[in-house]
Write a protein that binds this DNA or RNA. Structure first.
Lengths: 154, 154
DNA sequence: ACATTTTAATTTGCATGCAAAGTATTTGCA
DNA sequence: TGCAAATACTTTGCATGCAAATTAAAATGT
């Protein structure tokens, strides 16, 4: 009975770990068809929604780590999906802009959400929304915790 | 209105991506205190539950990728947390056994679940269970999908 | 104006996660 | 018996995720 909390089967975190990996594994072959990794796909989605934004805005929108993003953008530039442009009004900033090819990839990617959705057989849309809501709470709590700690230190 | 499914804010997968990363980031400093990474901690939890199991069993229990696990076990061996022993009855297999230090680390880790739980302020235990259940469904669906494909190919 | 601080990105080093290929062993079967 | 097929791992190569240190440029304070 002791240490019950240390049991893997009771841990929310381990569930998240497994689910996140499962999803990434599921996306990989689909994204390979259009020569993207999952984080790169996330970057593309962000840019398809709003093009020519700063790296900071991209970090905010995608939740991809900044230092990782630098490398990712480098590879995507090599693939001619986007360009990293200096912002002349503030030379610290960089603007990310899709190329024609980057823009046209949107059509080829348009069926991916459906293909993914088809794999969820035991979850209806209500449960999916519930799940998204709960995950938002998790993220909010964990990110807020960091803010709280900053408050305390001040 | 078009391409609504391609919007990040509507994607369950992106939520999972963010939540999983948030959790890992939250664990990191706590686990650093006992010199473990999150996957290493998962391995320890599995072994605290049941010691001297095969690598295959460890993969089954932890859901850590086999090739990654090989490397992880190597590092944990270097830290004298465990030993990788050849199974004499079947020389393909390896048995993983905790060292004294590995066993005693359990006490030092016993407060980590509570410390993590404390960070979840907006989620009660009912919601946590709900969340775990939904994540189980996700994992089940995505892993089953692979099985289904195997069925088809046969 | 000018030094200090803050911002925005990049670089570096380490630890996975994963697909694909490779290496022993053991099983299964003709 | 002997060899192909299945097992159980390991190795390799590539792409992150992240903390910490660095670099460059803009904002602030005096």
């Amino acid at each position: 009975m002791s240490y019950a909390q240390l049991q893997l089967k009771n841990q929310l975190c381990h569930r998240l770990y497994m689910a996140s990996n499962s999803i990434a594994r599921t996306y990989r072959p689909l994204l390979a068809d259009i020569n993207l990794t999952y984080p790169q796909y996330v970057v593309m989605m962000a840019l398809w929604e709003e093009d020519k934004i700063t790296i900071a805005a991209l970090i905010e929108k995608t939740a991809i780590d900044g230092s990782a993003l630098t490398q990712i953008l480098k590879k995507m530039t090599d693939k001619a999906l986007l360009m990293v442009i200096k912002d002349e009004s503030d030379k610290r900033k960089r603007l990310i802009q899709l190329t024609k090819q980057g823009q046209s990839l949107k059509q080829q990617a348009s069926d991916i959400p459906n293909k993914i959705q088809c794999k969820f057989n035991s979850i209806d849309s209500t449960q999916a929304e519930q799940l998204m809501h709960l995950l938002d709470l998790v993220v909010h709590d964990l990110n807020n915790e960091e803010l709280n700690m900053l408050d305390i230190e001040e």
